[in-house]
């Protein structure tokens, strides 16, 4: 079962060296344990561009599709047996990156 673990924050790319080291250690651990699928940090929402090609002509808009105080600052995609395991991994991830995380299953 695959889960998206989203990092919710009001800033991006602001991790202290300690937090970076904690995230690296956590990433190495979940790779070794076979939970790792993918992960990454994201640039600020102000760098986002929305594209809408539903009408056949691609409409390009500056900025995120949803303005909010807190946003997706990064994410993990993890493999876990069930939600209990995913929640435990997410708790360790939240501690490592010093932010709240949201756990959501893939279909």
């Amino acid at each position: 079962m695959r889960y998206l673990v989203s990092v919710i924050d009001d800033k991006t790319d602001s991790a202290t060296p300690d937090v970076m080291a904690a995230i690296d250690a956590f990433n190495e651990r979940i790779q070794a344990e076979g939970h790792w699928v993918f992960a990454g940090g994201l640039a600020a929402p102000s760098s986002a561009t929305v594209v809408d090609n539903r009408g056949g002509e691609a409409l390009i808009t500056d900025g995120p599709f949803l303005e909010s105080k807190e946003y997706l600052a990064g994410f993990w995609v993890m493999e876990a047996a069930d939600l209990d395991e995913a929640l435990k991994l997410a708790a360790d991830g939240s501690r490592a990156c010093d932010a709240r995380v949201e756990v959501r299953p893939f279909l």
Partner: peptide, 14 residues
Amino acid sequence: KAARIPYRVPSAED
């Protein structure tokens, strides 16, 4: 069902 909340008694540790 979607998030796969397990159908089990938590382990002794949990």
